[in-house]
Design a protein around this nucleic acid. Sequence first.
DNA 1: ATAGGGTTAG
Length: 395
Amino acid sequence: MMIESGTAPDASTAGYLIRALCRDGEPTVAYHVLRDVSRKRIIPDVVSITQLISAFSKCGNFGRVSEILHLMIASGSQPDLFTYQEIINALCDGAGRTAMVDEAFRIFNDLKLKGYACDVVTYTTMIDGLCKSGRMEEALLLWSEMVANGIQPNNYTYNAIINGYCKSGNIDHARKLYDEMFSKGFKESTVSSNIMLAGLCLHGRLADAINLFAEMPNKGIHRDVITYNTLIQCLCKEGKTSDAIELYSSMLATSIRPSISTYTPLIMVLCEEGRMTDATELIKILEAQGLEPLVCTNDFIISGFCRVGNAEKGMAWLSRMLQSNLKPRAETMDRLVECLCSLGQVDCALQVVKKMFDISYILGSSVCHLLISKLCGVDSYQVCELLDEIVLVES
DNA sequence: ATAGGGTTAG
């Protein structure tokens, strides 16, 4: 706009515009501004370009990130520690993406070679990324390196390592560091408590988890939605359904609003227990709160209805799923076919099979046997093998 | 003149 109106923008105006566009969730427009002004040899400040890099990093568009980095360097501007920090952080984000953590680690090590003085935030980010991808040994090495460089771990660093120990199964080490953290003067917080709570839950230490939860207010630590969700999920997992529901009720009495992760484990366990009225009631409640069930919640519901022999409701939910373009799990479809067969509704079962083929699923072999035997009333082994071949050829 | 960063569940 500035360019079209004939007014020559200066670097600070361009920088301001880029930051504003990033803040308003328009990184692509901001990127075009950067491109336009850089052609006129106008280079916005590092902070603004970093915001832009951060925006593309957060949405995983690393191709664009690398392009902007090259543009920066070519125009004689140096990315700073914050710039790389944002990229490393985004690369470490997302649990299962090991390859990305490798890339983050490569950039991190490169930074040191280039002479950047990594600070406690850079180290903590990298330590956290390594911990989250299960690379505890490397994380601990970084911890030592950091201390050797005269940088003291802070509460973030402790939390990252404690979380890593919790997730990798070394809950006693986690506990030891937890206490060490407080002895160094860092205060127990909602986050540190939530990490420990999740660790205890993960290792089935329900009594300890409940105790920690109960002690939080006594220690003046505020409980948040994650605190509640963690314990609710744990209670559900341990089969303490009524305790989980009670905790959910007590949560409603606070100012903390439930999230979808509050409901997902509750609905799952209710479905497993065949309490379909309660389960569907919760769905209504969460939808009334403007929340959307996870895809897997629909699967739980369908399987739940099958468990109680209500194939009709199961079919209805399946249609609803397919209409919303949601893909059910193969097991869910198998389950429904099984349920329909056992009720003698072979025609309905065949309808489901047809829908499965439509979304390119392959029938599980046990369900295949069942279906054929219902259709033919004979032992189906041979026929089923034949059908398997037909499906393979078709797909 | 100033602008920016890292942690917890699913």
